[in-house]
């Protein structure tokens, strides 16, 4: 966050370049890496055998590569705006601890533990104000704006099990997941540094920090909140028009 802010300030203070070679539109095509793991948990309670059963699942999403495309419109001498889209899909691992009531006795719960795998997908659209500049073949910019996320996560729906008399233990037979989603609104800041090979083509690197708070409603209306977005670093082709 601090790094991204500093980058914006740096870019804002940079002198104007490239007056002899202006462009109106820049297309950024590339990929990136969303760093850091993301953890959240969810507890589901429901009635079973006249008592409360609980399943608590701890999820951890791994860092992942993704896609990043953007188009930048230079409306003024140093100021423009951009529309960007990012797609990151993280592997989502989970471990659960479940407590299932005994069918014949109160207060004699059976415990079960296990793991599951799924995906956490973050799609985001970013609308930003851009401050840009040139220095020879170098092209740099910084931006800040709003982000609209669509988050989809595979959450544990249930834990099915088998048991047999005397029912003092259970054997987990399946852990079905369901995909739940949310569309939170957040923000993003970032900057990039490009090198132009020619009038129309270049290569650049960029960094973006985005964040929003998603609320995922799982089975039995169990809600959990998680931060989405994060620090993304990457690069790609630049096309100038």
């Amino acid at each position: 966050m601090r790094a991204a802010t500093a980058l914006v300030l740096f870019c804002s203070a940079a002198p104007a370049f490239g007056v002899d070679d202006p462009y109106r539109v820049k297309l950024l095509l590339g990929g990136g890496y969303e760093v850091g793991t993301r953890s959240f948990s969810q507890t589901v309670s429901f009635e079973q055998f006249a008592e409360a059963a609980t399943i608590t699942t701890a999820y951890e999403a791994e860092a992942s590569p993704g896609f990043d495309v953007a188009v930048q419109f230079n409306a003024f001498k140093r100021v423009g705006f951009s529309l960007a889209g990012t797609l990151y899909e993280r592997d989502l691992g989970g471990s659960f601890e479940a407590s299932f009531p005994h069918p014949l006795f109160f207060d004699q719960p059976r415990a079960a533990v296990g793991s599951l795998t799924g995906k956490l997908q973050e799609r985001a659209g970013h609308a930003s104000v851009v401050v840009f500049g040139h220095s020879g073949s170098l092209d740099f910019s910084g931006w800040a704006g709003v982000s609209l996320f669509k988050v989809e996560a595979d959450l544990l729906t249930n834990v099915t099990y088998s048991h047999a008399y005397p029912y003092d233990s259970v054997t987990v037979t399946s852990t079905p997941v369901t995909t739940v989603s949310d569309q939170p609104v957040g923000f993003n800041v970032g900057g990039n540094l490009d090198y132009r090979f020619s009038r129309t083509v270049g290569f650049g690197i960029q960094a973006r920090f985005s964040q929003a708070k998603a609320k995922l409603t799982g089975p039995n209306a169990a809600e959990t909140e998680l931060d989405v977005g994060g620090f993304q670093a990457g690069g790609g082709i630049r096309l100038y028009f």
Partner: peptide, 27 residues
């Protein structure tokens, strides 16, 4: 790959209060 007790699918577990006022499950 899986087996389920199919007798218990017919069963329901209720609750009841015993002679001494204690709550227990009723199969």
């Amino acid at each position: 790959v899986m087996d389920l007790n199919d007798v218990q699918t017919q069963a329901v577990v209720g609750t009841g209060t015993g002679v001494l006022g204690d709550r227990k499950k009723v199969s």
